[in-house]
Simulated scan of single mutants.
Amino acid sequence: MFRLSNNLIGILNVLTFILSIPILWAGVWLSNKGVTECEKFLDKPVIILGVFLMVISLAGLIGACCRVSWLLWTYLLVMFLLIVILFCFTIFAFVVTNKGAGEVVSERGYKEYRLGDYSNWLQKRVNSTKNWKKIRSCLVDSKVCSTFLNKYGGDNDEQFYKQHLSSVQSGCCKPSNDCQFTYVNPTNWSTNTNGASAQTNPDCSIWNNDQKILCYDCQACKAGLLDQLKRDWKKVAIVNIVFLIVLIIIYSIGCCAFRNSRRDNVYRGKNGA
């Protein structure tokens, strides 16, 4: 007779298996239909996640319903490793996103961002030429600055300076406030200035009114991305805490199912003898 824990593990793994199907399909679709660097970057992780969920849910389902102890043991081992990895990642996410914030600028609705304000680990990731090339491609493909121009293109300078821009828009789509450039439109600025502050900020010489260049290679753009990443990671870390609690509950139920399977196997062995 099946015990409650075995039934619960079976039901949970059926749900996980069903969930893995659209995830795997999405990965295959991205692999075949993806045209941008961002989409191609996501296909392999999504496929791996889908296959992983499918295999582990089958192991848990067969192990619990058919009372196969070694499959349940494998399932529990993977679950334990997943809990440890998720716990470590959550702590890591809080640590590396603890530093960094936008700088309030007088008479501006938006903030300015400095790369040096963020953790060294995050700085190294975006300063890597290989990494930034992919990230830059994603920013261009996402049309973040094109959307920015369409939204604020009709503003005069006074209206624009009062806008509450996102960290990526502020860092990548316009020059730094230090440069003291003259506003023409949100992505077009007159650069004929010899201000002292413009000479000390390297981003001022990088800025280009070309829509494909703008400030995508500026330190401020990297800092703006990190600020967005910081907020996103904190949200993910909070979700991870909830997910960890759920995993621990499932792991506890799985341990009960494993114990039941071993007892049933021992009982059948004795009756067979």
Rank of each mutant, 00 (worst) to 15 (best):
T97N: 11
K99V: 00
D157V: 15
R136I: 06
K130F: 01
D141I: 10
I91H: 00
K162W: 12
D141G: 15
S128I: 02
G109R: 07
D117S: 02
Q123H: 03
K143S: 09
K134A: 11
S137Y: 06
G154E: 11
K151Q: 13
D157E: 15
S119E: 07
T129E: 15
A93G: 07
Y118G: 02
L165N: 14
G102A: 09
G153S: 12
G109T: 05
Y113K: 03
W121L: 04
T147R: 15
L139V: 13
N150Q: 08
L122R: 05
Y152T: 14
N120T: 11
V126C: 09
Y113V: 02
K111R: 11
G116N: 10
E103M: 07
S128T: 05
R114T: 02
H164N: 15
S119G: 04
T129K: 10
G100Y: 05
K134D: 09
K143G: 04
T97A: 12
V140G: 00
F92G: 01
T90F: 03
N120F: 02
S166K: 14
R114A: 02
C138A: 13
V95A: 05
G100Q: 09
V96I: 14
Y118W: 02
N156C: 12
S142R: 13
E103T: 10
N131K: 07
L149G: 04
Q123N: 10
F92W: 08
D117K: 00
W132N: 03
K111L: 07
K111D: 12
K134N: 10
I91T: 01
S128H: 07
S166R: 13
F94A: 04
G100V: 04
E107C: 01
G100I: 06
F92C: 01
K162M: 15
N150S: 13
S146F: 11
R125M: 10
E103L: 10
V104D: 09
Q163W: 12
G100H: 08
L122N: 08
L139W: 09
R114P: 00
N98R: 10
K99H: 00
Y161E: 13
E158M: 11
Y118C: 02
D141F: 08
V96M: 08
W121V: 06
G109C: 01
T129C: 05
L165R: 14
V104M: 06
Q123A: 01
K134S: 11
N120S: 01
G109Y: 00
D117Y: 02
N156T: 11
Y113M: 11
I91C: 07
V104W: 00
V96L: 10
